[in-house]
């Protein structure tokens, strides 16, 4: 399997601000790749470099085997993009904008366009200015999804959509995946990524800090246990790899590092387990693990100020 997107050491500076700081990202053909990170981490900048709208200061990016800057036009025929902030022409209707963008890309499937307009419940006769953020996003989505692009670059595509539309979006993306298309899905909605993404890259301060399947990533972090034992379980807290031990209402709760799960389960067996639940880490916990130290720094700063 070849990679549709491959970047190595991408650097992009805006004045003194370093937006991308040696970003390595690879997205394989046919996968839905979740691209996660907080605001300002560099997700949108990465996508704009991949689109040839911005020129990287250093590093190399390959997109569908071509160079995003030099081969922009040829590549864009095979790509559909939905920006995070969709701006439309105030005096063009949504329908006109859908058709315009589709045709500029090289044509769109009319039957599919009409079907998507229906499914996303968009009124295509309204002028751009009168659309809400969600509706502007629908316009860009419909135009992108009605194309036959091999690669979809979606930058927080459903941030303004309601849950019903979110469900429609997920169905459509699954159908696209079934057709063998590749999707780079930058998102804040962790549930969406958890459901749709085959692989995930977590970006922080312009760098990809973690990349892999959700399953891979889960191995990198802790499992949460809740147990009720006949004998006191406090000794568990002393075992290596056990964190955040609490005992309330006769239940012990703690997190265990992936590589210590076996030894902890063995230790539990000797305590007379009455009930046990274990929960794999959520994506949220995965993210917080990477951003946790940042938050700690912030809190530290606040503490400094308080003093």
């Amino acid at each position: 399997m070849t990679n549709v997107i491959e970047t190595t050491g991408l650097v992009k500076d805006f004045g003194k601000v370093r937006a991308l700081d040696g970003l390595d990202l690879s997205v394989a053909t046919g996968e839905v790749h979740g691209f996660l990170g907080p605001n300002g981490a560099g997700k949108t900048t990465t996508i704009r470099v991949l689109l040839g709208l911005l020129h990287a200061d250093a590093g190399k990016a390959t997109l569908l085997g071509g160079d995003p800057w030099n081969d922009a036009v040829a590549l864009h025929r095979r790509i559909a993009y939905v920006p995070g902030d969709v701006e439309l022409w105030p005096n063009l209707t949504g329908g006109e904008a859908i058709d315009l963008l589709g045709r500029l890309r090289g044509g769109l499937d009319r039957a599919r366009r009409d079907e998507l307009v229906e499914r996303f419940d968009l009124d295509p006769t309204k002028k751009g200015r009168t659309y809400s953020k969600g509706n502007r996003q629908k316009v860009a989505l419909i135009s992108a999804l009605a194309s036959d692009a091999e690669l979809l670059l979606l930058d927080e595509p459903t941030a303004g959509l309601d849950p019903l539309m979110e469900a429609v979006f997920q169905e459509v993306i699954r159908a696209m995946k079934a057709e063998g298309r590749t999707v780079l899905l930058s998102s804040h909605i962790l549930a969406q990524v958890e459901v749709l993404a085959d692989r995930i890259s977590i970006i922080r301060l312009g760098k990809v800090v973690e990349s892999g399947t959700l399953r891979d990533l889960r191995h990198l972090t802790r499992t949460t246990f809740t147990v009720e034992t006949t004998r006191p379980a406090d000794a568990i807290a002393q075992l290596p790899g056990v964190f955040n031990y609490e005992f309330t209402d006769g239940q012990a709760r703690f997190d265990v590092d992936a590589e210590h799960v076996g030894s902890v389960v063995e230790a539990l067996a000797t305590l007379g387990v009455r009930a046990i639940t274990s929960r794999p880490p959520t994506l949220e916990q995965l993210l917080l693990r990477h951003y946790g130290d940042e938050m700690a720094v912030h809190n530290g700063e606040r503490a400094e100020v308080a003093r």
Binding site: I79, P83, D85, V86, L101, L104, R105, A140
Partner: peptide, 11 residues
């Protein structure tokens, strides 16, 4: 921001 969607097509 209206140039961005146009330039990300085959224009």
């Amino acid at each position: 921001g209206r140039g961005e969607p146009v330039l990300s097509t085959a224009v």
